[in-house]
Design a protein around this nucleic acid. Structure first.
Length: 762
RNA sequence: GGGCCCGUGGCUCAGUUGGUUAGAGCAUUCGGUUUACAUCCGAAAGGCCGAUGGUUCGAGUCCAUCCGGGCCCACCA
């Protein structure tokens, strides 16, 4: 054995051995309950970042259960990651001086597909480098035809069950990304702005968005507000356009804010929209999807809201309609992706009715059919579930499966179409306006987007001709699914669930579902975990996983969030190349409490590298003392038959070993990985090495059986945390002790886990 | 506006249902090391466990209030 642990010499070979021996692929045994984890599918396009290295927790769970002789499946996959990937790709286009609007959707889709394929394997290699015991034979990609087939079937089922509908509401629209987002995808930031007090004739209002006055349809006051009682029957007058609008009363209006009167602009504010709906007010838009002003006055039309605001204020000042301006710190929504302001706009979208779906989920968490760890997240999860709002699943991007709904253009001539014609020119217009100038085939092949009015009729069955009018001018909805609509079904689709006929689901599904643990970063608890549970219960009536385990994010040594701009990002690849995978794995686990931030420093990684070296050298010491003159002669003769005296120190170390086994098991049973590792660390280094090995130096031969037993047992305990160094050592010993009882199994990875006397309650 | 979490030696954090001298890694100081250890071993120094009050035979650990830091959710224009 070398003088020190050199990971680069062993890691790749060891991983190859495991994989080729088929250890990662479970043997299904109907008599045994399997242990299953579905890997949170990384963005197929992303190289690994430090967050992915936290999958170590899952590997620890899987490796331990595998050693406990359970059939273990850890299933890997990759996500096309709709908006994330398209965003990255568009940035790339931008660098080349292009944009997505230069391409029809088919071409763009193909380009992104190729872009992803180029990178799709990278993070798979990296996960292998980290030693993850994933069953690569079951790898799934979210855009595989079979996966998409099931996802579309779910859409159809939702539709049949009346849980799906189109609606035109205020959505969170990012004019830069050109798509709507769900409420979860909007970040809120505090911003210093101004509150403008405007003269609306008999009444004064206060607003932060004077540029939207052109779309005002009313002024609302609080019904409790006495000071406006008298003028309730009068009309307010919108300045600049001198439009008369009614003054109404609604309890959503806050009496003490501003003047207590709120201008109602249903098209550009969610609260106003709600009030507008209640009072039957019209919806007038003054900002279009491109983010530009429209339907205003000639000085303003075509401007972006920011410029429009200044211009409007100038004009209001001129007409003496601006009463005063006061500074106001308020929160605004920004796009979580591009950080630009979210523009609330009315757009027809597809929605899932979530309330009926959430009931089973809530019940399962309350009855602990689905457990959440750490338990403190249970409350926020339930709060969210209980107040869930309908889910907007439409995204106006191309990267992802299109929503399976079809419109007949002849029955819906008002449909707005954007396409690139055969000369490469972008054409926009209603179908009724363009149908005589272009052939349908030209429109279809150059199609970018269509925008169907809310009353448009659609079919969820694909057909060549319209059942109503018999024409063949049919286009599919160009909205694609929110990525989470696909990934929300991941535990089902990856295991082979059949939506249309659950009886026909694959044997894998029948055996491995429900899965055991879902481990993920808590920031996607609602995005993903919640949706997986919704789909799991909706489609199978069962929870998709018995336990949700949430871990925290990795921060730098000062406790600061890692970000590119701060320059404190730790690249896992560099780390494991320098220190070895085991050192990185342990640095992420050691001394970390459940779901608390993980402070990662180079010093800590070094310390764990030293620990690997310590393990290696303890083994080396024993290895050398086997002193085998001829490796083929059986070492066992040398000590197995010899009578040796058990001394006090032998008894003590064995007792301590037993104690360590117990506490490691207990800690692991309760998901205290950091504590478990600390226990082994202390035992191995400071008791076994510092005390026991030192004490046996003058009676090496006699102590050999105990040395070997403690070493091999420790290797087993350490294996889930540091698989490479432990397996490498084991293989060295196996070579010289092929028939020794402790080194019988082919690999440490499949050796029997040291069970303690369990003290935890089950 | 509602909710959650954190505040323990210079730094980063453990401390599981309240129980003997509060732990680790890194950093610091001193000593040792001819062979398991690009190191390692031994020893030392360093903490009124954010503040105050309470429950208790006993609290870092439970309760209340306050101070300081972080996070999540929410339609205050």
């Amino acid at each position: 054995m070398d003088k020190r642990w050199q990971p680069e010499k062993f890691e790749a070979e060891i991983y190859r051995k495991w994989e080729s021996s088929g250890y990662f692929t479970p043997k299904k045994d109907p008599k045994k309950k399997p242990f299953t984890i579905i890997l949170p599918l990384p963005n197929a396009n992303d190289p690994m970042h430090i967050g992915h290295a936290m999958f170590t927790i899952q590997d620890i769970l899987c490796r331990r259960h595998r050693m406990m002789a359970e059939p273990v499946l850890w299933l890997p996959g990759g996500d096309h990651a709709g908006i994330e990937t398209q965003f990255v790709f568009e940035k790339k286009l931008q660098k080349q001086g292009q944009s997505r609007f230069d391409y029809d959707r088919k071409t763009l889709y193909k380009m992104i597909w190729d872009f992803v394929e180029e990178n799709r394997k990278i993070n798979q290699f990296q996960m292998k480098d980290l030693g993850f015991s994933l069953d690569w034979s079951r790898y799934r990609y979210s855009l595989e035809p079979e996966i998409i087939k099931q996802v579309l079937a779910t859409f159809k089922k939702l539709h049949q069950d009346g849980l799906l509908y189109r609606a035109e509401r205020i959505v969170n629209y990012c004019t830069h990304c050109g798509t709507a987002f769900s409420d979860l995808e909007v970040d809120h930031v505090e911003k210093d702005g101004f509150l403008y007090y405007l003269d609306y004739g008999p009444i004064q209002i206060a607003t932060t968005r004077p540029e939207t006055i052109f779309a005002d349809v009313a002024v609302a006051v609080s019904p409790k507000d006495k000071k406006y009682k008298k003028i309730a029957c009068q009309k307010a007058i919108v300045p600049l356009i001198n439009k008369e609008v009614p003054i109404i009363a609604d309890e959503l209006v806050e009496r003490d804010f501003g003047t207590g009167a709120l201008k109602i602009t249903p098209a550009h504010d969610a609260t106003d929209f709600e009030i507008g709906q209640k009072h039957g007010l019209p919806i007038i838009s003054c900002i279009e999807l491109s983010g530009k002003m429209i339907n205003t006055i000639k000085e303003i039309d075509g401007l972006y809201p920011k410029q429009a605001r200044q211009k409007t204020i100038d004009l209001l000042k001129k007409e003496n309609k601006l009463i005063k301006t006061e500074p106001l710190r308020h929160t605004v929504g920004i796009c979580y992706r591009c950080k630009n302001l979210i523009e609330p706009l009315p757009v027809p979208q597809w929605y899932v009715k979530t309330k009926p779906l959430s009931e089973a989920v809530i019940k399962s968490v309350k009855t602990k059919e689905t457990k959440i760890f750490p338990p403190r997240f249970k409350k926020v999860f339930l709060d969210w579930m209980e107040n869930i709002r309908d889910w907007n699943i439409s995204r106006q991007i191309v990267w992802g499966p299109q929503i399976p709904a079809w419109y007949c253009l002849d029955c819906n001539p008002e449909i707005q179409i954007n396409f690139i014609d055969s000369k490469g020119v972008l054409v926009s217009g209603k179908y009724s306006e363009i149908k005589d100038k272009y052939r349908f085939e030209e429109i279809e092949s150059g199609l970018q987007t269509l925008n169907a009015p809310i009353e448009a009729e659609y079919s969820i069955e694909k057909s060549k001709t319209c059942k109503k009018c018999g024409q063949g001018h049919i286009l599919q909805e160009t909205d694609t699914f929110d990525t989470w609509f696909l990934s929300g079904q991941w535990p089902l689709t990856t295991l082979g669930f059949n939506v249309e006929n659950p009886e026909k689901s694959s044997p894998d599904f029948k055996y491995f579902y429900p899965t055991s643990v879902m481990d993920t970063l808590w920031d996607i608890l609602f995005f993903w975990v919640g949706r997986m549970m919704i789909f799991g219960f909706y489609l199978t009536g069962k929870t998709p996983f018995e336990l949700v385990h949430l871990h925290a994010k990795v921060v730098d040594e000062k406790g600061q969030k890692m970000s590119k701009s701060k320059g404190n990002v730790v690249n896992p690849t560099e780390i494991y190349q320098k220190y070895g995978a085991d050192a990185l794995r342990m640095a992420l686990i050691y001394g970390v409490a459940p779901a608390s931030n993980i402070a990662l420093s180079e010093k800590k990684i070094e310390a764990m590298r030293n620990f690997c070296n310590k393990i290696w050298n303890a083994a080396r010491f024993i290895f050398i003392n086997l002193e085998i003159p001829n490796p083929k002669s059986q070492i066992s003769n040398k000590f197995q038959n010899s009578k040796f005296k058990i001394r006090k120190e032998d008894r003590e170390i064995l007792k301590l070993l037993r104690k360590t086994i117990n506490s490691v098991n207990k800690n692991l049973d309760e998901y205290r990985f950091g504590q478990a590792l600390e226990e082994i660390y202390q035992f191995f280094w400071h008791y076994f090495c510092d005390l026991y090995i030192e004490a046996t130096k003058n009676r090496k031969e006699e102590a050999l059986p105990v040395l070997l037993e403690v070493l091999i047992t420790s290797l087993k305990l350490l294996h889930p945390f540091a698989p490479f160094v432990t397996e490498s050592i084991y293989q060295q010993f196996k070579k010289v002790l092929p028939n020794y009882q402790l080194t019988k199994p082919e690999a440490l990875m499949i050796a029997l886990w040291p069970e303690g006397i369990s003290t935890s309650k089950h």
